[in-house]
């Protein structure tokens, strides 16, 4: 998770909502596994038929591959379904790049070790241009230094992530472990509220 260097798959569409990432009819599973095969189901296949892939959709075009997905502005809007993050991760992506993420999706991604990297509009355009010109272009993401760049064309930008989440991602910690470790604080908080008659 610290350092990822990979080619990328571009989906240059704004407002990619979680219903596109994984349609509701595939949310019936009760485990977290196997959602990748239905990632972008209705953009990938004609008539809901795996035998009829839509050839112009990037996931169906063999020239696009890699562990990085690049989407346009407002990626992951709509439904809170974490299945969207599971599907992207299960398909084989470790990083999603956009100029803007919907809040719930961003949290869901982080909770599944899928790194959302928010870049400026300009930088996003440069990424799209570079990988569309040469699909073998590698993007380098350094979580420790919080940088994203394309070494071959010499571009780089810093990205934001809060230091708590960064530590979690680098060390493989999860929020539940952290919350369980402060259970005394939580119980103390409850007792204090009871004492003042709140809730």
């Amino acid at each position: 998770m610290k350092h990822i260097k990979s080619t990328a798959v571009p989906i240059n569409i704004e407002n990619i909502d979680t219903d596109q990432i994984i349609p509701a009819r595939f949310l019936k599973a009760t485990s977290r596994e196997g959602f990748g095969k239905n990632l972008f189901r209705d953009w990938r296949f004609e008539n809901d038929d795996e035998a009829q892939p839509k050839k112009d959709f990037p996931l169906n075009d063999s020239k696009w591959k890699g562990r990085i997905l690049v989407g346009a502005k407002n990626f992951g809007c709509g439904s809170s379904r974490e299945h969207a993050a599971w599907a992207i991760k299960d398909y084989g992506f470790d990083v999603v790049i956009s100029s803007f993420f919907a809040d719930i999706f961003k949290n869901n991604a982080l909770n599944n070790f899928l790194l959302p990297v928010q870049v400026s509009d300009d930088f996003l355009q440069k990424i799209f241009d570079a990988i569309e010109t040469d699909p073998n272009t590698e993007i380098e993401v350094n979580l420790e230094h919080q940088t994203i760049g394309i070494p071959t064309i010499g571009i780089e930008e810093k990205f934001d992530i809060n230091s708590y989440k960064k530590t979690c991602l680098i060390n493989g910690y999860d929020d539940i472990d952290f919350l369980l470790s402060i259970r005394n604080d939580i119980e103390g908080f409850e007792n204090k509220r009871k004492a003042v008659g709140a809730a």
Binding site: E82, I104, N107, I176, L179, L180
Partner: peptide, 16 residues
Amino acid sequence: IGTSEVEMVMATQCVL
């Protein structure tokens, strides 16, 4: 919230 957070709230009644 997402399902990981649902689990957090079930386990600790808190979210981050």
